[in-house]
Design a protein around this nucleic acid. Structure first.
Lengths: 110, 110
DNA sequence: ATTATGTATATAAACAGATTATATACAGGA
DNA sequence: TCCTGTATATAATCTGTTTATATACATAAT
């Protein structure tokens, strides 16, 4: 019923911003990175990543430039902007609050 | 950008199932219950609840009956089915795993 | 009396982010 | 030559949530 995309929704941008905090990267690498850390639960699709990039670039959260295609195809690199950093901090705080709320609502208790 | 609905998505049904585990209830009460526990972060809309009920009833997760409208309008009560209980257990385990994954992806570390 | 508020359910239409499908391109191994 | 892996991109589709709107009854306020 609910696919991985259902609970990724609302977090995809935050995750991308977090990864770019460690340094510039490109779509394919970011995608692989997310799936790797996803413990088999997260299966983010290429199209999701690339459409998120367009959206985030338009929103001024990311800056982009072309890197040399070392080996295979060309790579488009992304770097996080100041606006992106600020949004990340907000989203991070939001997640920490949300986690508590969902623990309460899903696991129950009280 | 991301509204509360974005991170509710994929969890709404789980939350409803959890609340019905405590006993039969009706839409308005469930809705109020969720918002109350939401710490101002969750603002689930009526339409979301009622469309979720239809979906879940069609999926055999819920059974329904009319209760007397004590005071105001009539109430449609819902009770969780065996299938609903099983799905809840799956979703609960999924959430506990997802929480760890998202902690890793959003907060970073390692 | 009538207006406003709170309780309670319901559905069509719009919205938005994720998925599916498809296309392109190059390198290296079988 | 074909397949796999790397790498990006977009149109069309899917789906759960939201917006807007409708109905209905009880009670308190004007």
């Amino acid at each position: 019923m609910a696919q991985s995309g259902d609970f990724l929704r609302g977090h995809t941008e935050t995750i991308i911003l977090r990864l770019l905090l460690d340094g510039d990267s490109y779509g394919y690498e970011i995608s692989k990175n997310i799936v790797e850390r996803g413990m088999g639960l997260i299966d983010i699709k290429d199209a999701t990543i690339y459409t998120a990039f367009r959206r985030m670039e338009n929103d001024g959260l990311l800056a982009t430039y072309w890197g040399e295609g070392a080996g295979g195809a060309r790579r488009r690199y992304y770097s996080i902007t100041e606006k992106g950093r600020k949004l990340y901090e907000e989203k991070k705080a939001e997640w920490q609050k949300l986690r508590t709320v969902l623990d309460n609502l899903i696991l129950g208790g009280k």
